[in-house]
Amino acid sequence: MSELIQHLINGIATGTIYALVALGYTMVYGVLKLINFAHGDVMMVGVYMGYATAFALGREARSSLWGVLLIFLVAMAGCALLGLIIERFAYRPLREKPRLTALITAIGISFALSYGFQLDIGFLPGAAPRAFPQIIQPVQWFTLGDPEFPDVVLWNWQVLSLLVAVGMMGGLQFLVYRTRFGRAMRAVSHDHRVAALMGIPTDRVIAVTFMLGSALAAGAGLLYAIKDTSVSPMMGLMVGLKAFVAAVIGGIGNVPGAMVGGLLLGLVEEFVVGYAASTWRDAVAFGFLIIVLLVRPGGLFGRVAAEKV
């Protein structure tokens, strides 16, 4: 029983991080109908920015509340900027071209970032994973069983990542459905040409959406690095792909769907690893994806819209 509870806790903690990254995929897909392949790698860059900031702050400052906030702020702002640059120079020129060109570009950016960061030239960090500093001192908030070797442990960062994720999702839901900007986003998502005719600055809406999604990714990436206590150039690819799977499971383009998909994927993965075989972790997500696509191609909350000509 206690084992089950522990797996539930771990699964939800991982799932919230997937969900946060998935939100970025879903937002960008919502306005552009483009799978932003580079999303996970933008996240990775954000984590490295946080890592550099943590080291610049030094051992004392980085574990204070302001230090942690500063690390998150730098990473999120840096990623927003990176997202803006990518959108402006890589995606915007291709917006009226066939979808395949944009997809290939996205894959190219993803590849350039994840392998570019593995080089050992200049400021680039090299391929080896590095230990991420413990900016949040791990505290056991809740334990069950023997106090020395507890059966169930709930860490403070697990609660934190859940709170951050729920908070961000709530904020996003509010932004999309309750603000002027959100209305503009939904209009662009519906039909960006008509939206432009109605006086909506589509370019700006899309750019801001990209920045928001990238900032969310940076936040999620830092939470992941705190959980994993490591950072490596390849983390973006794997986490990004899993988050994408989460977004598809929930129904891509759907904000609560991304959340549910992320949690579901986190739990499924955790249970398979816990009860079946740990070496199969990476295969679980894709197996799950194929099954979902077979049974419900639109995802759990998505609708399959007929393609209009």
Binding site: I109, F111, A112, Y115
Partner: peptide
């Protein structure tokens, strides 16, 4: 071998932008 990979990535982006 290491440089090859990011070069491929950049190559894809440049190709798509200039000669899709």
């Amino acid at each position: 071998d290491q440089i090859r990979m990011p070069v491929y990535g950049v190559l894809l982006v440049v190709l798509m932008l200039s000669r899709p």
